[in-house]
Amino acid sequence: MSAPQTLSYAQAAALALSEAMTADARIVALGEDLGRGGVFGQYRGLQQAFGIERVIDTPISEAGIMGAAVGMALAGLKPVVEMRVIDFALCAIDEIVNQAAKNRFMFGGQGRVPLVARMPIGIWGASAAQHSQSLEAWFAHMPGLLVVTPSTPQDNYSLLKAALASGDPVVYLEHKELWGETGPVDTAIGVELGRAAVRREGSSLTIVSWSRGVSASLQAAELLAAEGIAAEVIDLRSLWPWDREAVMASAARTGRLLVVHEAVRVAGFGAEIAATVAEELRVPVGRVGAPRVPVGYAQPLEQVSRLQPVAIAQAARRLCG
């Protein structure tokens, strides 16, 4: 039996990757600055442990990195691709959307693309419009991709392992503001892709969120509890596949659904969940997300795009009212 250890979200990912690379010689990692541990320390020690052939420092060539990873995968490797921030992954959109996501299907099952593309999301320290986006809905829209959004160190350990084992291209979205968050990590805990976690139980309404939105939702639930509103908070953990069963069961019981995400609200993935629940259960639904503006640099502007527990609580009250 393994004893849980206290790790940061970044350390948990490094541990998962290290263990997976030890167990499977086909796994390689490639991206910019990996030899120095990655921008956020999420690869710390790996190049020293596995060598420059398996932890590959690359030129700043996002299309080249993702394209090369597709080729590596088709030729029998399992690449972990670092995109630095999701905003830069847009330079590799053909490679992920037209190539990685399509190959297995359009080649009639010949060849698979078991790659994990790590694309850190979210607002982080005044990083402004091109380093702060949450674009998970873009990728959730895309057949052929799996989309994973860990919110805790334990999940970043367990979900990264699950992503590596899935055998299909996974868009793996770590939130930049979570890198330093610490928590217990038990290496014996496995998490299946597509299984949500109930982070707080409640009977008044269901709040569904993921990534950084989970802690904002839990803070909102605290505010609501003081007023006698018992919010159930579900962490979706992966957006594709998303755990319909868990969400439906909870919303059927509470009779109300609120979806919370840091991404822009318009055409966000919250719309998909809210629509699905409304269609199937006919319960009232609501959404909280950022206004449709670029993330501003100055603090008051950045604040406009951040999830506010107070605003989440307000939306919950409206649903319960």
Binding site: G67, G71, Q99
Partner: peptide, 15 residues
């Protein structure tokens, strides 16, 4: 689009 894919497949052959 095949060019980086080819580079990656060649990279795999080398590894």
């Amino acid at each position: 689009a095949g060019i980086p894919i080819a580079a990656g497949a060649a990279h795999a052959l080398k590894i």
